[in-house]
């Protein structure tokens, strides 16, 4: 495979065609409802208006976005801090054992999101396993209110998206050129220095990819905030869902969706730039 000018476009073509046909075209059709009015009985009244965008500008929605972004970001950071050492340990396990460890890291997630969440409720509730365990160990105070808090939401999100980060980081760590590390050590760098100067920059793209996964999946989640957060917290993805289904207001849902998609894409593009800058753009000289 040579990396000349035409080949890349050819390689990308099938994926791009799929996304154009099954994402861009249909989503643009739906998002274009943002320019029309909600019919009195739901549905679309095809009269042009910008009212929906004016409603999106309401600071209430910015506040909901920022709050859910904060929860998603906290989740992301915790997930990376747990996943990185795990992925590192898996990548250093004997070669034969690595696929087995990866498999067991994703296996719990082939059950079902709802029943996993119910399991967390059993663990965290006031009459739940954790509180009972504490009581058995001699704790006599008020039972801990673990459930229906922001922490419960974050625990649930970290839990469900942890394997995604492990996979992403592992995929950049696995079979990293060990000569680089030896070279670093030969040059007198200690293990900590080697990690920060060699390993971390090399795996940064994986950390970034995994972080993006957790962030976007968390901000769009509505099961965990509803069940573990007791519906007291709302992620911004839920807002769009409510407009489409509960309020039956597709035009406003489309306008909110558009604002969310645009904001997120800009954030991701900035993030991608920053990551490739930090890990040192290495490809220019090769192509």
């Amino acid at each position: 495979m040579s990396f000349n000018a035409t080949r890349p476009n050819l390689l990308a073509a099938p994926g791009v065609a799929w996304l154009m046909a099954f994402m861009v075209v249909p989503c643009l059709l739906v998002l274009s409802y943002a320019f029309f009015q909600r019919g009195t009985w739901g549905g679309i009244d095809y009269t042009f208006t910008l009212e929906n965008f004016a409603r999106v500008a309401d600071p209430l929605y910015a506040r909901i976005f920022l709050n859910s972004a904060r929860i998603a970001l906290t989740t992301t950071l915790i997930a990376i801090l747990i996943a990185y050492p795990a992925a590192y340990a898996i990548a250093r396990a004997p070669r034969m054992r690595q696929p087995i460890l990866l498999f067991f890291a994703v296996l719990p997630f082939w059950s079902n999101y709802l029943i996993r969440t119910y399991a967390w409720i059993v663990l965290l509730n006031r009459e739940g396993l954790i509180n009972n365990l504490l009581r058995a160990m001699g704790y006599t105070g008020e039972p801990l209110s673990l459930l229906y808090t922001e922490s419960a939401v974050i625990i649930g999100l970290v839990y469900n998206y942890l394997p995604f980060v492990i996979l992403a980081i592992y995929s950049t760590l696995s079979r990293l050129n060990p000569e680089l590390m030896e070279a670093s050590r030969d040059l007198g760098a200690g293990p900590i220095r080697t990690f920060f100067r060699v390993t971390l920059p090399l795996t940064l793209p994986g950390v970034a990819a995994g972080g993006v996964f957790v962030f976007v999946l968390s901000i769009g989640n509505f099961v965990t905030p509803a069940l573990l957060g007791g519906g007291r917290f709302q992620m911004v993805g839920n807002l769009v869902y409510d407009q489409f289904l509960t309020a039956n207001d597709w035009p406003f849902g489309a306008a909110l969706g558009m604002a969310l998609i645009a904001t997120m894409i800009v954030l991701l593009l900035v993030q991608a730039r920053a990551t490739s800058h930090a890990s040192g753009e290495r490809r220019g000289e090769a192509a």
């Binding site: 409603r55 709302q234 309020a247």
Partner: peptide, 19 residues
């Protein structure tokens, strides 16, 4: 009953409560 135009006020109120 279906709320008609008042739906917008309800859905904003609910968003505010949940936020």
């Amino acid at each position: 009953r279906d709320l008609g135009p008042a739906q917008k006020d309800y859905s904003r109120a609910v968003s505010e409560i949940k936020a």
